[in-house]
Design a protein around this nucleic acid. Sequence first.
RNA 1: CGGGGUGUAGCGUAGCCCGGUAUCGCGCUUGGUUUGGGACCAAGAGAUCGUCAGUUCGAAUCUGGCCACCCCGACCA
Length: 608
Amino acid sequence: MRGSNQRPVLAAEIHIVRFLRQGGYATHYANYPKRFHMVGLLVCNYKNAKTVFFDLITLQFYTLNRSKSSPLVVVVLPHGKRWSLRAARIEFHLDYPFSRPNGLCPLYLRPVLAHFMGKEITSRAEDYSQWYLDLVKKADLAENSDVRGCMVIKPYGYSVWEKMQQGLDQMFKDTGHTNAYFPLFVPKSMFEAEEKNAEGFAKECAIVTHYRLKSDPAQKGKLMVDPEARLEEELVVRPTSEAIIWSTYKKWIQSYRDLPILINQWANVVRWEMRTRLFLRTAEFLWQEGHTAHATRAEAVAETEQMLHVYADFAENFMALPVYKGRKSESERFPGAVDTYCIEAMMQDGKALQAGTSHFLGQNFADAFDVQFTSKEGKLEKVWGTSWGVSTRLMGALIMAHSDDDGLILPPKLAPIHVVIVPIFKNEEELARISEKVNGLVKDLRARGLSVKFDNRDTHKPGFKFAEYEMRGVPVRLAIGPRDLENGTVEMARRDTKEKKVVKLGDVAALIRPLLDEIQQNMYQRALNFRNEMTTRVDSYEQMKHVLDTKGGFVLAHWDGTAQTEAAIKEETKATIRCIPLDASEEKGVCVYSGQPSVQRVLFARAY
RNA sequence: CGGGGUGUAGCGUAGCCCGGUAUCGCGCUUGGUUUGGGACCAAGAGAUCGUCAGUUCGAAUCUGGCCACCCCGACCA
């Protein structure tokens, strides 16, 4: 972190240095190495009227002067440190401190302290990707593990994933699929059978070459790979399971009576990525992969489309995430597929995210693995296939689509906790009185099928809990204290809008379900409005570049359908064809790049 | 694989130029006062300074090798 980020000297900086030279804290400042600049200073009367000094280098603060007569707070930001919006707010006030030392209130300081004490996350405006990483960590969703590129999904994060699994799994079952499990390892010869598929994943495969370790004679207590335990044939750790599954299907399919096969598996896969980001791209990730086999082309195509709609349905109704459905261009197609369908979502920073794919495999895998069946007419025919999947990447989509600077915002249908109840109490007796009321409420809410948490820990203050559950995205919070006890009320707060209102204790149970529905709806509407706002129709290349550079988001533009044009646009703008929308009306036009005729607009965007 | 950077307590770090086993904060523990939006005060625990070797009476600090990680490219979604 220590570093080389250069930034322009602020006008305020000059004031400060001058100020310091005139006395004050110049001596303290002088103790620090010259290579660090003092770039911010704030004078205010902090609550306890003590002096806090930020270490120039580490941005840590500590008390310099405990004298209550010196109500001075000095905030110093070092040269080259990561900036925050909060810090920027201080800059804004730099014109003031010297003229009115007591004029600034601690309100501006407290967020700064909180931020640097690790209690806050980076704001979206300041650094979107840092915000994302902070959020994932602070909301207790996941963390980096000691294994490069692999993450630990923490209990809270996994609970959300489980909710997704439940929703999807039910939808798969409802469309006639059953779950099964196939091995993690795929023999290399089997893996390479479908050439395009193998080629597409070859560069990111982990390979098992040995099956035994032994103690290292050269280093006591250390192990080494036993060179004598080399596998006859290497095993590929599955990056996807078409190979192993189709080689199995071959054994299962003889007659048209054996079809269709509609199988899904929940599994982990490994793709050795160069650069990883929590949830969005990790070397190992969790997903589901559906693999179906059909007697006819039409049936397989219908399955592919059906599952695309299942995904879109899930995204919209569970994740509150509107998506565009479409087909991939040839260059973006899944290796080994004849056609790839996808759903594309818009993130708050204007970048697109592919949230799910469904592939029509044609007879490619039937060819590769020689999977044939005898039809009703007694003819030997090749099987048609599909595969479709969504992964823990959906977690990334969920986070980046909805959350704010205070943390995660979860749609009620995926929230592990629907309602958290925070008691406000001074002593045990008061807590007991509150608990009595709350216990009845909890029972009532649970009877209504809601997941409720009563956080009666006495080790944390209410304010801390408020912030914590906001960070975790719990949709509804109820707070109940002595005042409420007296009035028979409870404070009800919703996470999506931060609205709070006081309602009658007796009414609250009946209010929650409708409120959750409203939150779910509101989140979808908000995301939809944003997505629509971030979708721009353009009719020239100039306009397209301008929109991509200034506004971002999706761009609907005419394309001549050639890979060359697609590649050129990608090269020049970094934007790719996200999909050829399914529901777009035909519209004659000319390609924004080449001027060649085009029959419909396609969706471009910079993407994750 | 190219260019740059960094390894010191669970986390973030100071110290390194100019050698004398280590700074500060968060967090943690204990006690007290607190509790309607991230409490305060006090006391305490916690580090073989990435690793191996060299120089030296003495190495976090100087020298060399190795390892790991991060950032920017390249690759990939």
